[in-house]
């Protein structure tokens, strides 16, 4: 049975899995339009009530999650209008994707005119598995990634949460947020690169 069939069949566990599995990205999406976490929680809750009301009429012209996110975005926007936060995701995505960016600081590489190794690593990349003694354990690294995610620009944060935390596929993210595939890829690249860089800094601190 598909997830949709299970929901229509009255499977409460399937509903709970869907609610929990998408809570983080739904809250982030809502929070982009409204001014507080509390209102974002309300918007997500209202969205689920609207989903239940519409579930029997849902015609599967999009994926279930895409349909749910369109309801969410509409609700969040309606709330957001009062707070004058109505910039579309496609605009925000293009803006973030257009900012200058380097996955790794330029000074970590030899200059482009180096006689022997132009554009290669200037020094060996520090290995994470050689951090002595206080090697970051799984809990510490997860906490650190959580902090790095929270510090990302908003669209990069949403895309990485959807993709790497909640396990969405790229086309579904593009549909749910109405952003282009090219921008989705750029945002994901920047997000992952930034979180990696932040972990690297943390590993380096552990070495001191």
């Amino acid at each position: 049975m598909t997830l949709l069939e299970r929901l229509r069949d009255g499977d409460g566990a399937a509903f709970a899995t869907l609610v929990d599995g998408n809570a983080a990205s739904m809250l982030r999406v809502a929070r982009m339009h409204v001014s507080s976490d509390a209102v974002a929680q309300e918007v997500v809750q209202e969205t689920w009530l609207a989903v239940l009301q519409g579930l029997d009429r849902f015609e599967e012209r999009s994926s279930l999650r895409t349909w749910i996110f369109h309801i969410l975005v509409n609700r969040a926007r309606t709330r957001g209008v009062r707070e004058a936060r109505t910039v579309p995701f496609s605009t925000l995505a293009a803006r973030e994707a257009g900012e200058p960016f380097a996955a790794v600081d330029a000074d970590r590489f030899l200059p482009a005119d180096d006689a022997e190794w132009p554009g290669h690593w200037a020094a060996p990349l520090p290995r994470w598995d050689e951090v002595p003694e206080r090697h970051l354990d799984a809990r510490e690294t997860a906490t650190s990634v959580r902090g790095a995610l929270a510090a990302l620009p908003p669209m990069q944060r949403i895309v990485m949460i959807m993709r790497d935390v909640e396990g969405w596929e790229a086309p579904e993210i593009c549909n749910a947020l109405d952003i282009s595939e090219a921008n989705q890829r750029v945002l994901l690249h920047r997000a992952r690169s930034r979180v990696r860089a932040s972990l690297e800094r943390e590993m380096a601190d552990e070495r001191l």
Binding site: A24, L49, V195
Partner: peptide
């Protein structure tokens, strides 16, 4: 490794009351 760690991060959830109300 960064992507794998992200997969086990504790992220924001719905408040328990909201979740109960949805159930």
């Amino acid at each position: 490794e960064t992507m794998r760690i992200a997969g086990r991060v504790e992220v924001d959830r719905l408040r328990p009351e909201a979740r109960d109300a949805l159930t």
